[in-house]
Design a protein around this nucleic acid. Structure first.
Length: 466
RNA sequence: GCGAAUAUGGUGAAGUGGUUAACACACCAGUUUGUGGCACUGGCAUGCGUGGGUUCGAUCCCCACUAUUCGCCCCA
């Protein structure tokens, strides 16, 4: 048997519906914020990521999927979304677009060569936005609030925004020197990794987990204290806008991010959910004003974030938040003989083209099996074909919920279904308010708690009474 | 890159150095000449991750490998 590659996943069934739900939410939210969808290639010249992300970062040194193609080109599967977007922005000269700033979003797979574990895969899906060509603090706040609202709409209300500012180039350099001077006399107290970081990227020492509790780290100079006036003012402005938008945040001087290109605002979205382990970061981002120029474009401000969809869904699961995924069909068509089967085939198409979700029996199973199939599919109505009824241009329709059954004229079917389904929607929205979404159909023959078709646990009322 | 655990059918799993590998759920067929969830009957692993070894004999013991899961590291 050929199996899937390490760290990859097949997504299907109910799981696929959850993903689809998130995709739709993203699209509709982005439409409201007026960000345009953008799709860039899954692979790019390796150089793009090396120049963009930074040679020193772990990502480029050991976590990318690299290969040479048949033309001997060095190719890398994209490990993140920003570099490709920026490359495209430059290549397509979007800085000349009459509409500025350029606000885009993406939602696609990324690849990282890592050891997989819970919440971390080799193929992962990220949703992210990028705003290019706007330096104003208001856009920082919009981008952050947008992400928070995305989480809120999913039901994750306890996502924390951790925010920090690295300042502009000048501030960043100053701070770096301050930090080096601060750590230099204490190098020996640091862990092995941090000794490496001291050389390559001293900022990263701050979010080291091994040394985190040492007073040396706790008392380390803070970025914010070493911002120059302009940077400081800018950061305050971002926070003001966040207050205005009622976004809760926590200024965390240890957020420095792994990538070299960040400046000014950097942030991380974390969810304090039991069972998420060290994968509590659901998304992150920041401002990358130097990147466009670094990749060969004009000086252009940029900001964005990336959110891991898989990890977000995992958080929802751990927090026991259910997404309202549709798992019902409007009607299922049953029949016994071949004449009826032909009519069923015709009727299914007719109803589908009229906007109903319809399925039917395909392989002439006995009625018992067909009823079971209809139940499994959560069909709201069963259309039971009968030659005699068909001759009278009628059919028998059974309401799966009420068990009521009646014979109606074929001509009235569409109208009938429309009416009933509208009613049904009304009723189920009422029920949602009372949180009674159990599909046990009143009577239950199970002795214990069991899994409902909709995937949740429910206990049967008449057993509870005992 | 480092560490740990696990590996039996569609699923959850039990099990033993020796003829037919429990049990449950699911599924299929039937009892029921066209109405589902109950009951009953029957069907459902030529096989216990792969390769080697020990043995008269291995799913069970040993070794290696692979895969999965979890943790560390790291995280766009």
């Amino acid at each position: 048997m050929i199996t899937k590659q390490k760290g990859c996943h097949d997504i299907y069934g109910v799981e696929a519906k959850r993903w689809k739900y998130v995709d739709k939410l993203i699209d509709s939210l982005m439409e409201k914020y007026n960000y345009s969808y953008m799709r860039t290639p899954l692979f790019e010249a390796s150089e793009l990521f090396h120049r963009g992300i930074g040679e020193a970062s772990d990502i480029v040194t050991k976590e990318t999927y690299d290969f040479t193609d048949r033309g001997d080109r060095a190719i890398t599967l994209r490990p993140e979304g920003t570099a490709g977007i920026v490359r495209s922005y430059i290549e397509n000269k979007m800085y000349g677009d009459p509409i500025q700033p350029v606000k885009v979003y993406y939602n696609g797979t990324m690849y990282r060569y890592e050891r997989p574990q819970s919440g971390r895969d080799r193929e992962l899906t990220q949703f992210g936005v990028e705003v290019l060509g706007c330096e104003d603090a208001v856009i920082d706040a919009e981008v952050i609030s947008l992400a928070v609202n995305f989480y809120r709409l999913l039901g994750l209300t306890n996502v924390k925004v951790q925010i920090n500012s690295l300042g502009d180039e000048e501030s960043r350099k100053n701070y770096r020197n301050v930090l080096i001077e601060y750590f230099r006399p204490h190098i020996d107290e640091l862990c092995e990794d941090c000794k490496m970081r001291f050389e390559k990227n001293p900022l990263r020492i701050l979010d080291c987990k091994v040394d985190a509790d040492k007073p040396l780290l706790k008392n380390a100079p803070k970025t914010i204290a070493h911002l120059n006036e302009v940077s400081k003012k800018r950061f305050e402005e971002v926070l003001e806008y966040l207050d205005l938008l009622k976004i809760d945040y926590e200024v965390n001087p240890n957020i420095v991010r792994g990538l070299d290109y960040y400046q000014h605002t950097v942030f991380e979205f974390t969810a304090d959910i039991p069972g998420m382990g060290s994968q509590s970061a659901l998304g992150a981002g920041g401002r990358y004003n130097g990147l466009v120029h670094q990749l060969g474009g004009p000086e252009t401000a940029g900001i964005g974030f990336g959110i891991g969809i898989g990890r977000t869904l995992l958080a929802l699961e751990k927090a026991e938040i259910k997404l309202p995924v549709e798992e019902e069909i409007d009607a299922f068509i049953l029949y016994i003989n071949d004449e009826e089967k032909k009519y069923a085939t015709y009727l299914a198409q007719e109803l589908r083209l009229n906007g109903f979700s319809v399925d039917m029996e395909y392989q002439n199973r006995n009625l018992k099996g067909q009823f079971r199939q209809a139940e499994r599919l959560n069909a709201k109505f069963l259309l039971i074909l009968n030659s005699e009824d068909l001759d009278n241009n009628e059919l028998k329709i059974k309401d799966a919920r009420s068990k009521e059954e009646e014979i109606i004229s074929m001509d009235a079917l569409i109208y009938y279904l429309d009416e009933k389904l509208a009613m049904d929607e009304y009723i189920s929205s009422e029920e949602d308010l009372e949180e009674s979404d159990c599909h046990c159909h009143g009577t239950c023959h199970h002795d214990h708690e069991h899994e409902c078709h909709s995937g949740h646990n429910c206990s049967c009322h008449h057993h509870e009474e005992n």
